[in-house]
Design a binder for these strands. Structure first.
Length: 642
RNA sequence: GCCCACGUAGCUCAGUCGGUAGAGCACAUCCUUGGUAAGGAUGAGGUCACCGGUUCAAAUCCGGUCGUGGGCUCCA
């Protein structure tokens, strides 16, 4: 045995032989003491193992540190165990669920009658520190299923037994021990608790259904994060603070953009004048581009007879998301959750020829959906919202081309609003679906082809399509890293079928069109929320609710200020005039806080020379210029959508 | 919907042991006419989310309802 060797290749290409059974820790200590200090785990032939595991096979070896995603995962996973051990010391009756690493830290789900509150965090953190201090070695053992079940039964970890029972037969069952604490875990972990250091923090506690199923009991999920260096933890906490400052709910209040009020109803938005101004710009731009791209705009009602929704199938598959129907003169009406049936009805109002296709009908359609109260979130998740909806009716041959055109428009519009990074997903056929397999394949191929033509990187979300067809989703991330679906392109075979849509083909026969649902903003409310966060409320000039504000120094400058105001207004600039009896410094401060891009200060000098002294938000004083010059400058910027 | 936390003036927040409420900003009036991020004085403003309970006495303790936040499940 001792004579056996393993041959290992390092990332730099170097190969070395070691006695079989050597551990990563032993190797790394020999290579570099610094790396030895930073190493968290070993990656051997795409398997991640702990530093203490004996190496018995040849292959590629790499040491993972916190700089590697996999290294962070191990670090946070071990941190989750650390927290679990501390919790078990304080609350021995707690039962452990699962405790994985997540994007910026880790959590552990525990079952405990007594609620854990943020006040308990300090106590838990103190216990964690003691465990780190003790520097218990973290030891892996593999055990046969029966032994494992017995063991966890003994320590009354019922949830763990449930997990084991669901493991496939061939699964190697492993557990990790540190001190008195043992947890069922696939691993790997850091070599000892001391390696985790003391730069950790518990962040929040939340309910979470056991195994993500709302029919199961609810456990307490405790979130935390940890870093190898103090500075990294501080930076992370600082990032969270900064993100909170950009929160659209906070900025919406500060900048007086919108409100949500108890007296109106939750999930229902009041767009205040400043928010409405931004929305009008969004809408106007959108309308112009849609006419330019061959769409026709339509308007449709907010309610329709329930029959319509029965025909469309919404009363069946979408009922739980709809407001309840209302009755009027013995007829049931339904507040609309979607716009599609209306557009279809417009299509069907006349006999269509293949020459009419593609027919693109677009609308800012305000829809109402019942969302469970717990999911509502500012502008991002609401109960009444306006979709920038459109439905494209086309022949099967036109499908790919139409999707490419939609993607072109999506990218153009998102980029104009300053979004250059997004996640693209292709969602394929789910388990429950309608339509023929051939149709599905053709439609999925059309979407794939379109993505290819556009050269977009995308991920496939298998089985995540809508039951009526596959779709492309484009998601934008908010400041806290949550991603929100905005644009969506969905192929639909179902509704043309249900509504018996037809067109007369070249051959004189009746054919069924294909329908594409698409939205670019997704919802104006959500998109606006994302915009607010994206710009931290400091909208670019073309979007800013107030583009420039005139600040007269004293009231003897008001007449001149009014002249400048009139001129800019005539030029289409959103301008305000601050006539308040305040010092100019005060007015500037307010304009800065309101994130107005340009401030125009006018005093004796300006009146005399027909100029304005221009201050740019953030940049400060950029000198004085003639009113005409300033007008040309700002009008130009607006035109370029800067 | 579920778990936990929270709800005090338009906004941001104090409020001790249960003894009937406070600041700053904003608002109104007056003074001040001041050149690039807060001039001064005075005043008005509260059914302490709502409903009920305990108590001589509740913003404070207890229960319920509504709303908000962090999550879970679900989704634009």
């Amino acid at each position: 045995m001792s004579s056996q060797k393993v041959k290992l290749r390092f990332p730099d290409g170097q190969e070395k032989e070691y006695p079989a059974g050597i551990t990563g820790e032993e190797i790394v200590r020999e290579i570099s003491p610094r790396l030895a200090k930073e190493a968290i785990a070993v990656k051997l032939n795409d398997k991640i193992i702990e530093l203490t595991r004996p190496i018995t096979e040849d292959g590629d070896i790499r040491f993972l540190t916190f700089a590697d995603k996999e290294g962070r995962e191990v670090f946070w996973h071990s941190s989750a165990h650390l927290m679990a051990q501390a919790i078990k010391r304080i609350y021995p009756e707690a039962k452990l669920g699962i405790g994985p690493p997540i994007e910026d830290g880790f959590y552990y789900d525990i079952e405990l009658d007594r609620p854990i509150t943020p006040e308990d965090f300090e106590k838990i953190e103190a216990e964690m520190a003691r465990i780190v201090e003790a520097d218990y070695p973290i030891v892996r053992k593999e055990l046969p299923r029966q032994k494992a079940i017995e063991f966890f039964k003994n320590i009354r970890e019922d949830l763990k037994i449930e997990l084991i029972n669901d493991f496939p037969d061939e699964e190697v069952i492993s557990a990790y021990s540190q001190g008195e604490f043992t947890d069922l875990c696939r691993g790997p972990h850091v070599p000892s608790t001391g390696r985790l250091g003391k730069h950790f923090k518990l962040l929040s506690v939340a309910g979470a259904y056991w195994r993500g199923d709302e029919n199961n009991k609810m456990l307490q999920r405790i979130y935390g994060t940890s870093y190898p260096k103090k500075k990294m933890l501080e930076e992370h906490l600082h990032r969270i603070e900064e993100a909170k400052k950009r929160d659209h709910r906070k900025l919406g209040k500060q900048l007086d953009l919108f409100s949500i009020q108890e007296s109106i109803g939750n999930g229902l938005i009041l767009w205040h004048p400043k928010g409405a101004r931004v929305r009008r710009v969004m809408e106007q731009f959108w309308i112009d581009e849609h006419y330019n791209h061959g769409y026709e705009l339509v308007y449709t009602p907010h309610v329709a007879k329930l029959d319509l929704w029965e025909r469309s199938g919404h009363t069946g598959f979408y009922r739980e998301n709809m407001f309840p129907p209302m009755e009027l003169e013995d007829i049931h009406y339904q507040l609309k959750p979607m716009n599609c049936p209306f557009h279809i009805t417009i299509y069907k109002n006349q006999l269509r020829s293949y020459r009419d296709l593609p027919l693109r009908l677009a609308e800012f359609g305000t829809v109402y959906r019942y969302e469970r109260s717990g999911v509502l979130h500012g502008l991002m998740r609401v109960r009444g919202f306006t979709q920038d909806d459109a439905h494209i009716f086309c022949t099967p041959e036109q499908l790919t081309d139409e999707i490419v055109k939609v993607l072109d428009l999506v990218i153009y519009i998102l980029q104009t609003f300053g979004f250059h990074e997004y996640e693209v997903y292709l969602s394929t056929r789910p388990e429950k679906f309608v339509g023929s397999l051939e149709n599905w394949e053709a439609a999925t191929a059309a979407l794939e082809k379109a993505l290819e033509v556009k050269g977009l990187n995308y991920e496939v979300d298998p089985g995540e399509g809508v039951f009526y067809g596959p779709k492309i989703d484009i998601k934008i991330k908010d400041v806290l890293g949550r991603s929100w679906q905005c644009s969506t392109v969905q192929v639909d075979f179902n509704l043309p079928e249900r509504f018996e849509m037809e067109y007369i083909g070249e051959d004189g026969k009746r054919h069924r069109p294909i329908m594409v649902h698409r939205a670019l903003f997704g919802s104006l409310e959500r998109f606006f929320g994302i915009l607010i966060e994206h710009y931290a409320g400091a909208f670019p000039v073309w979007l800013a609710p107030v583009q420039t504000i005139i600040l007269p120094i004293t009231d003897r400058h008001h007449n001149y200020a009014q002249k400048v105001y009139d001129q800019l207004r005539r030029a289409g600039v959103r301008v305000e005039l601050d006539r308040r009896n305040e010092k100019v410094g005060f007015k500037i401060r307010e304009a800065e806080v309101q994130k107005i891009p340009y401030m125009l200060i006018v005093g004796d000098k300006e009146v005399e020379s027909n100029t304005v002294s221009v201050r740019h938000k953030g940049e400060g004083d950029i000198g004085s210029m003639r009113v005409d010059e300033f007008e040309a400058r700002i009008v130009h910027e607006i035109k370029l959508k800067k």
